[in-house]
């Protein structure tokens, strides 16, 4: 499928115009929307994650690739919905209350979307109630919390506790990440998982979504 090769290339190279064009071409050629996601976008974003891990790529390249992937998803998403295709899982993601850092969270959100998840991104400075509301109304099975400051990390615990007191702790898996966050901290606050990197977050989400 030459069209998908082009799309794969466009995502890796971070060319959103080429990604949109290749997606249109693939659909016109009769490629199934789900095949575009699982056969192309997922492996392409996996490759982007790998390039980041081995220090080939850095934040700017990741953002460009994410934008290219999103340009493709914007075309594919309505088709998937129309066909009634179920996503791998539904993730509510946000940076916790008191913290305005967006980039890391955006990268993880993009990687998750590229990984076949439906992503509900609540943005930054998100209060526990908003996580709970979104997880409930959108029937999410995963909640992903980000924090970039040591002083806002306690908001992660507050959010996990809020899910507990709302009686929703068993219904969702909670994953945490961000520069100051560690596995140790994730365990201490009772989160279900921690990932050090955006690429690792996809693998973690897949693991948590299955259980």
């Amino acid at each position: 499928m030459p069209d998908l090769d082009k799309l794969h290339q466009a995502v890796i190279e971070g060319d959103w115009k080429a990604a949109a064009a290749a997606t249109q071409a693939a659909i016109a050629a009769g490629v199934a929307p789900l095949t575009i996601v699982t056969g192309c976008l997922v492996p392409a974003m996996d490759e982007v994650g790998r390039l980041f891990e081995c220090e080939e790529y850095f934040v700017p390249e990741m953002l460009l690739s994410a934008r290219a992937m999103k340009a493709s998803m914007a075309i594919v998403r309505p088709l998937l919905a129309a066909a009634g295709t179920e996503p791998v899982g539904r993730v509510v993601i946000g940076t916790v209350k008191g913290d305005l850092h967006d980039i890391g969270k955006n990268l993880v959100a993009s990687m998750l979307e590229g990984g076949g998840f439906e992503v509900i991104d609540l943005g930054a400075d998100v209060a526990p109630e908003r996580f709970i509301e979104a997880a409930t109304t959108r029937n999410a099975n995963l909640v992903a919390l980000s924090a970039l400051l040591t002083v806002t990390m306690p908001s992660m615990k507050t959010t996990v506790d809020a899910f507990q007191s709302a009686g929703l702790r068993e219904k969702v898996k909670i994953m945490v990440g961000g520069a100051p966050v560690t596995q140790q901290y994730a365990d201490a606050i009772g989160a279900d998982g921690y990932s050090e990197s955006a690429g690792g977050a996809v693998a973690l989400a897949r693991r948590l979504a299955v259980v």
């Binding site: 850095f58 934040v59 700017p60 953002l63 305005l100 850092h101 967006d102 980039i103 955006n106």
Partner: peptide, 18 residues
């Protein structure tokens, strides 16, 4: 001015990493 509150800042930040 709180730079981080401006959504454009994050992308300008990434651009200026070059």
């Amino acid at each position: 001015v709180e730079l981080a509150a401006d959504p454009d800042f994050q992308y300008l930040y990434a651009e200026m990493m070059a």
